[in-house]
Design a protein around this nucleic acid. Structure first.
Length: 364
DNA sequence: CTTCGGCTGACGG
DNA sequence: CTAACGCCGTCAGCCGAAG
């Protein structure tokens, strides 16, 4: 069955939201930052608008580094996720009303399966124009949309021309569209895989497409190897899913100072546990596993986890188990110094799924 | 043999 | 002068233990 998939990508989303509530920012370079609170400039760039990108400022970059590239008039702002989320939810509603199936991928992206709504790529292009118009008129934001026969092509198409782009890649043009691109452009290929492929002399998606499947499986493992082969050939059977249940919730933060001392770290961890419980409790979830995440001063990451026999939903379990895990972790790693600490719950169960006889339901 | 828990690592937004 | 560094979530793979 031939599908028609749209990928919607809101342009420099966090920055556009900030421009929305403060129009005087328009035309200026805007950098939205995730500050860690340790020093005035420690943290990373969340989103840079296109003016800031011209200066060489990009997502993920350390703020201190971005400031070196910035002009005196460049604006640095802290992220406000709840605000962006409220805007995102309204836009996703617009998307849903234009296509039965929509799958959100973060606050700023969505896949739409328009197969039931339109029958041709020309029809899909008109739908995309309508969608862009509605988002602009109702919410004042621009986006880029890509259209293809599967999620992979749609995503690469939306990335092709932005901001405010619209790119249609018909199946017969697919190969031509992707084969000349560098392998890093392919969804699922990050810095490590790119490096490995370059060592093998594979630079472009076209070269990857003709590499032996067996060789790729041998080099990258079963799943990854097959996926590389399929994606490089434009093959992607992943369906657009309406509701994806979250598998885990986590909260992590940066300590005021590096420490390997339980008494320094645990009060901060307890705060994170309370915030985490708020979220989990709002989502009406029970959890069976608790983990801590520890990141050292050298940015090495560790996890330690514990699974209980019974699903829980109380804040005390999170704080107690995580404190226990932290104590054990520090004892097993004497001399270690932590920069960041976090807590996660997983093995989730919907509260509604619990048997009525179970006592733990009463607090809901 | 399969499944589960515990852990690491790659990746994406 | 140089290095600089968030937070959240998914999945695969490996290992050892248990079913």
């Amino acid at each position: 069955m031939q599908r028609i998939i749209l990928h919607l990508d809101l342009d420099a989303f966090y920055a556009q939201c900030e421009e929305l509530r403060n129009p005087s920012l328009k035309g200026k370079a805007v950098v939205v930052c995730v500050y860690s609170g340790r020093t005035p400039d420690s943290g990373a760039v969340g989103t840079a608008n296109y003016e800031a990108r011209k200066l060489g400022i990009h997502s993920g970059m350390p703020i201190a580094f971005a400031k070196k590239k910035a002009k005196p008039e460049t604006i640095f702002l802290p992220v406000d996720i709840p605000y962006y989320k409220s805007i995102s939810e309204r836009i996703m509603e617009i998307a849903k009303s234009n296509s039965g199936k929509t799958e959100t991928a973060g606050l700023d992206e969505a896949y739409l399966d328009a197969s039931a709504i339109v029958k041709t790529f020309e029809g899909a292009e008109q739908l995309a124009k309508k969608l862009k118009k509605e988002i602009l008129e109702q919410e004042g934001l621009t986006c880029s949309i890509g259209i293809g026969q599967n999620k992979l092509i749609a995503k690469m198409a939306s990335d092709f021309r932005k901001p405010n782009g619209l790119t249609v890649v018909k199946p017969e043009k697919q190969k031509e569209f992707i084969s000349g691109m560098g392998v890093k452009k392919l969804f699922g290929i990050g810095p490590k895989t790119e490096e490995a492929l370059l060592e093998m002399g594979i630079k472009t998606i076209g070269e990857l497409a003709v590499a032996k499947k067996e060789f790729l499986v041998e080099s990258f493992g079963e799943k990854k190897g097959l996926q590389l082969h399929e994606f490089a050939n434009g093959i992607d059977e992943r369906s657009v899913e309406n509701n994806i249940e979250k598998q885990q919730f986590s909260r992590i933060g940066t300590l005021k100072e590096d420490s390997g001392n339980f008494n320094d770290i645990n009060p901060f961890l307890e705060k994170l546990c309370q915030e985490l419980f708020e979220r989990v409790s709002n989502e009406r979830k029970l959890f069976r596993s608790v983990s801590i995440i520890a990141i050292t001063n050298k940015l090495q990451s560790f996890t330690k986890s514990r699974t209980m026999d019974e699903p829980k939903h109380d804040p005390l379990t999170i704080t107690e188990v995580s404190a226990e895990l932290l104590r054990e972790f520090l004892a097993e790693n004497k001399g270690i110094s932590l920069r960041r600490i976090g807590v996660r719950v997983s093995n989730l169960l919907d509260a509604g799924q619990l048997k009525k006889t179970q006592k733990t339901l009463e607090d809901f």
